[in-house]
């Protein structure tokens, strides 16, 4: 994301490591079946997100709105239509049971956890840094890394192009067509030039990169170099403690009995 923010210790963590830790955490979360434990872990991650992303609070709150949405929509489907023994409520096809309610909450919290982890990452990591680090630490081939960086640069250009195409269509009289068939026509009129234009531009940039002697050798030097630091240890430690403490608390002080 291209919004400015203060630098916090989360920004200083090695990007590959950060990504790796978050993905591992996601995998672990897939195996957490205990609602209490899930809630604890989610709270721990939320804390990280709210306090250390370095972005102003109002922006964070704005970005959090979709979270509630995700939580509600993910859990509601499960709650309303799930199977279970202990029936709480039944109306037509809808049946809420205790089991389905708990499972719904579990799924909802998991979706919330994933969303927060993802946003924390993208708010505290510059894509360019991530790809430089991936080349250095994970040995990602440069041709993939630089392609990604070039493509990300193209995103704002594509969005602007969309606006321009709209204007061009207006000049040429496309907007004046009416009816269902024109809807199809308009969709085609917008999407095809956008897509084919992007492909051509991508091709041109690739040619320009090769004209600048881009090669895929791995012994290239790097403008940004990434290593590991104390922050990285702290980061790993935070999650280890979170997972252990969360488990302990969920056993000792459960909020809900299942």
């Amino acid at each position: 994301m291209n919004v400015s923010s203060a630098e916090t210790w989360l920004h200083k963590i090695n990007p590959s490591l950060k990504l790796f830790v978050l993905i591992v955490l996601c995998m672990v979360a897939l195996f957490i079946k205990d609602l209490n434990y899930m809630i604890n872990v989610t709270m721990g991650v939320l804390l990280l997100f709210l306090c250390f992303s370095g972005h102003p609070l109002n922006r964070i709150l704005l970005l959090s709105i979709p979270f509630c949405f995700i939580f509600l929509s993910t859990s509601s489907a499960m709650i309303l239509f799930g199977q279970g023994e202990t029936l709480w409520f039944k109306w037509g096809l809808i049946s809420i049971t205790e089991e389905s309610f708990m499972r719904g909450l579990l799924v909802g919290f998991r979706a919330l956890l994933f969303a927060v982890l993802g946003l924390t990452f993208s708010l505290t990591t510059r894509p360019v840094n991530l790809f430089y680090s991936l080349m250095q630490q994970v040995k990602l081939k440069p041709k993939y890394a630089y392609s990604f960086m070039a493509a990300l640069r193209l995103i704002p250009i594509m969005l602007e192009e969309f606006q321009t195409i709209r204007n061009a269509m207006r000049v040429r009289g496309v907007e004046r067509k009416k009816g269902i068939r024109s809807l199809y026509f308009k969709m085609k009129a917008y999407s095809i030039p956008l897509l084919s234009g992007s492909i051509r531009r991508a091709h041109r940039i690739a040619v320009a990169m090769e004209a600048k002697r881009f090669s895929d050798t791995r012994n290239r030097t790097y403008y940004y170099e990434f290593g590991f630091s104390k922050n990285d240890h702290g980061f790993i430690l935070y999650f280890v403690i979170l997972l252990l403490a969360g488990l302990y608390l969920s056993v000792q002080f459960p909020y809900l009995s299942i």
Partner: peptide
């Protein structure tokens, strides 16, 4: 090679990174 279209010859978001990209290709030390 200097191309005609100023917009589609860069692959990096910042000016210094663009030139650094060339230097990296030539294995110039950091």
């Amino acid at each position: 090679y200097v191309f005609q279209d100023p917009d589609s010859q860069f692959c990096m978001p910042f000016a210094d990174e663009e030139i650094a990209f060339v230097l990296e290709n030539l294995s110039v030390p950091k």
